[in-house]
């Protein structure tokens, strides 16, 4: 940081060392509360989690035993935690690319409009603002197997020969079993949240639904920074189609935005909790298929009072976040700047 230079340049302060000393005192006094709180509220818990992850501590027990790497060993050998890691990575690897992709797509489409851009932007941003827990409960109601609007809608589409033919692709001569929609019509509508094959995907869907508007706004901000001249230059070089222009100008120019958007979406995706807790508590869904890390920390560490395991998952989580940040820093440092 270059902040120190601004001060050494002021001659008056050099002339009066007592002012310096008084300033130093006030400086410490003013940053002391923040410093103390950062150490107790943010740093100490990280250390505590690390220490506890090597113990079998439980809240209310007078003592504890050191168990070495037993908690970590469990995470990597027991099937429960294999499911946890699988659910977490399924979620992250689905939600991150799709919510970044939809965010970028929406930003590009909206930016190309002359009218109505503001209203689309406002609509797509609504889920970011809305209480996720409340909206999850609404989605749960919409996905209700018998009275939910989604299955009602599917039944209505199946009931009409035209739409049934269209969506099941039977007009192409396909058998009803060949398409998802065809199977829904012949075998009945899905149970959604009660079905192991759907549960985690519903959680992913709500995550994407909630988050892509945030990415859209970041991309819209990034797009305003792409200079018009670059497009003109690309056109002169023969980039006629809009795809060529996107590939040669827009996408590289959005590089820094993309690195940032992907990192922040990853970190948020790792923290998914509200959806899983509202839909699948206790247990984490059919066959633990939606047993994501945050939910595991809550269930093991808090509800079941298995602090050691919860702390080990916490440490693992922090490691993931650190790795992501290091990767982001590396890429950003190596970045070629276009602006």
């Amino acid at each position: 940081m270059t902040t120190a230079d601004t001060f050494t340049a002021v001659p008056r302060e050099r002339a009066a060392p007592s002012v310096d000393r008084r300033q130093a005192g006030t400086g410490w006094l003013m940053s002391a509360p923040a410093l103390a709180l950062m150490l107790t509220i943010l740093i100490a818990p990280v250390v505590l989690a690390l220490v506890l992850s090597f113990t079998d501590y439980s809240l209310g027990n007078p003592g504890f035993n050191w168990v070495g790497f037993e908690n970590y060993e469990r995470i990597f050998t027991r099937s429960t935690y294999a499911k946890m890691l699988s659910a977490t990575f399924t979620y992250v690897l689905t939600v991150v690319p799709l919510s970044v992709g939809f965010g970028l797509g929406a930003a590009l489409l909206i930016q190309s409009l002359t009218r109505g851009a503001a209203i689309y932007k406002a609509i797509y941003f609504l889920p970011v603002m809305a209480t996720l827990l409340a909206m999850t409960i609404v989605w749960q109601l919409m996905l209700h197997p018998s009275i939910g609007v989604i299955n009602r809608g599917l039944e209505a589409l199946c009931a009409m020969p035209v739409t049934r033919g269209l969506f099941s692709l039977s007009f192409l001569g396909l058998s009803p079993e060949a398409t998802w929609f065809g199977r829904v019509c012949t075998e009945g509508t899905p149970l959604w949240l009660g079905d192991r094959d759907y549960a985690i995907w519903v959680v992913c869907f709500v995550g994407i639904w909630q988050g892509f508007g945030f990415n859209m706004v970041l991309y819209l901000a990034g797009l305003t920074g792409v200079s018009r001249e670059l497009y003109a230059a690309a056109e002169m070089d023969g980039a006629r189609s809009s795809w060529e222009r996107f590939r040669l100008v827009t996408w590289p120019a959005l590089g820094p935005t993309t690195v940032f958007v992907v990192t922040i979406t990853c970190i948020r995706a790792f923290q998914a909790f509200d959806t899983v807790e509202a839909l699948f508590s206790p247990g984490g869904g059919p066959g633990k298929s939606a047993y994501v890390m945050m939910f595991a920390i809550y269930e093991k560490g808090v509800t079941q009072n298995l602090v050691g395991i919860g702390a080990a998952i916490t440490v693992l989580f922090l490691v993931f976040v650190m790795i992501l940040t290091v990767i982001q820093r590396r890429i950003t440092e190596r970045k070629v700047h276009y602006a």
Partner: peptide, 17 residues
């Protein structure tokens, strides 16, 4: 450095404290 720590992630030790 603290900017990197998501408070939700350290909820368990905070809760214990």
């Amino acid at each position: 450095f603290c900017l990197l720590i998501p408070v939700h992630a350290i909820a368990l030790p905070l809760y214990l404290g």
